[in-house]
Write a protein that binds this DNA or RNA. Structure first.
Length: 431
RNA sequence: UCCGGCGUAGCUCAAUCGGCAGAGCGGGUGGCUGUUAACCACUAGGUUGUAGGUUCAAGUCCUACCGCCGGAGCCA
């Protein structure tokens, strides 16, 4: 008898199969009982009839508890009364292990309890759906890049210094060399990579030791950094837009069931697959002031500002051309206005906030050097980075996507801790 | 780090003005042949976060501490 995955049972209508998985729920009614089981690929209802199975199998109902592991054999058939449209008429149930006192019920639970039991919470249907969407987003990003001439280039996670110098880094003892720091971005290394491979990306965990305490921050999160030689600001934005729209379409195509489990408004995602809006930072400030904000002209955008800027927009919004003072040292100056840099943040609609930060990079040795001196950066540690402007410097651009932010938006998840298997936040390191 | 809030059964919560600690879920026992977070009956389950204080009496009021949640800043 074939072992099949629940997602494939529709191909086995009228056939006997074996399913392997876990008890999700059960309902009994005297001489008939229903077994809801899941196997990682889907969920299906089993029907156990008293006069069609042995006494022993029928009385498994007494023993089976939520999340007990089981192997079920039976006949697949379509039935409208069954959730999912198919069910298995059970012939035999083999118990692998009986779960005792599984703590997470199908009722409501609090955040702290669920996070303490994250290792089990992952099995719940909404968490399962989010993880499947995360998988799609991850592979859609790399598919797009691989199809567009980007090579995967793995940046180091242990680094001698801050990438941007501003945020706090986690430090770890490093033999005789003092402290190493966990990377907060592989970008600078990617800039070396493009001089070899032309277009490169990395995709891995990065670390921020800031005591951020919001629904969009993690101390460990996954970032995809891409970098491309001879690509300037305009083309940089074009690549970003194509990539994000590629991801939207992948999720809509591959995860309709998951979006439904999450009660995600699919129309919102469909509407976002259209040309993105673009405004300059100065226009953003003017707009926010017209809405009653007293935001400073040299100010970064706060969470509320991001919401205001996108509240009437179905598509993501690029905010470009920022005052150089509030952006990183490596961003290239705007030829038309030396007080601005050619950077852009991409803000997702529906209040999900910034999902991409990118820029054209400064490729002029002297300008970069001056800027680094002005920021008191340890030049010795960045000699190699300056070298890139000495030996065949080219215009180039890049951007970084926060995977969890993007998954948050795609899945419509309110808090970022639910879109990564095991969230690391300021007050949580377990499980 | 700052501002605000919450800690009561395994879980989610209730407990009026300070006056006998309770319900649903989950567990256990029994019933039911098409259930959809099934339902019905019965049942076990408590150091009210910790330490002090006020009071005849504290889950409730006061102080400190601990834990957590939400938000801000910073960023992806």
């Amino acid at each position: 008898m074939d072992w099949v995955f629940i997602k494939d049972v529709k191909n086995y209508d009228g056939k006997e199969v074996t399913l392997k998985g876990w008890v999700y729920n059960k309902r009994s009614s005297g001489k008939i009982w229903f077994l809801i089981m899941r196997d990682g690929t889907g969920i299906i209802q089993g029907v156990v009839l008293k006069n069609e199975v042995s006494e022993e199998v029928f009385h498994q109902e007494d023993k089976l508890t939520q999340e007990s592991s089981i192997i079920v054999r039976g006949l697949i058939h379509a039935d409208k009364r069954s959730p999912g449209g198919y069910e298995i008429v059970v012939r035999d149930i083999e118990v692998v292990q009986i779960a005792k006192d599984y703590p997470i019920t199908l009722k409501e639970h609090g955040v702290e309890f669920l996070m303490d039991n994250r290792h089990l919470w992952l099995r719940s249907s909404k968490q399962w759906a989010v993880l499947r969407i995360r998988h799609t987003v991850y592979y859609a990003i790399t598919d797009y890049l691989n199809q567009n001439g980007f090579y995967r280039f793995d940046s180091p996670l242990l680094t001698p210094n801050a990438c941007e110098g501003t945020t706090t880094l986690f430090s770890v003892p490093y033999f005789e060399l003092g402290n190493a720091y966990l990377s907060q971005s592989g970008q600078l290394y990617l800039e070396a990579g493009i001089m070899s491979l032309g277009r490169v990306y990395d995709f891995g965990p990065v670390f921020r030791a800031e005591k951020s305490k919001t629904r969009k921050h993690l101390t460990e999160f996954w970032m995809m950094d891409a970098e491309a030689a001879f690509v300037e600001h305009e083309q940089n934005l074009k690549i970003q837009e194509e990539l994000i729209r590629f991801v939207i379409n992948a999720v809509l195509e591959k995860n309709p069931d998951d979006l439904e489990i999450l009660e995600r408004d699919i129309d919102q995602l469909k509407k976002a697959d259209a040309p993105f809006r673009r405004i300059t930072h100065a226009e953003a400030i003017a707009f926010l002031r017209s809405k009653g904000s007293d935001i400073d002209a040299q100010s970064d955008l706060g969470a509320k500002d991001e919401v205001l800027l996108t509240e009437n927009s179905a598509v993501p919004v690029f905010v470009e051309k920022w005052p150089k003072e509030i952006k990183a040292f490596y961003m290239k100056r705007d030829r038309e206005n030396p007080n601005l840099v050619l950077g852009a943040d991409l803000i997702a609609p529906e209040g999900f906030g910034e999902i991409i930060g990118g820029s054209q990079r400064e490729d002029d040795y002297d300008l970069l050097y001056q800027r680094m001196v002005a920021e008191n950066m340890p030049l010795d540690d960045y000699r190699w980075y300056l070298d890139l402007r000495k030996y065949g410097s080219v215009p180039h651009s890049g951007f970084g996507i926060g995977l969890e932010r993007l998954v948050q938006w795609m899945s419509g998840t309110k808090h970022i801790r639910e879109v990564i298997p095991f969230a690391r936040t300021i007050y949580r390191l377990k499980p």
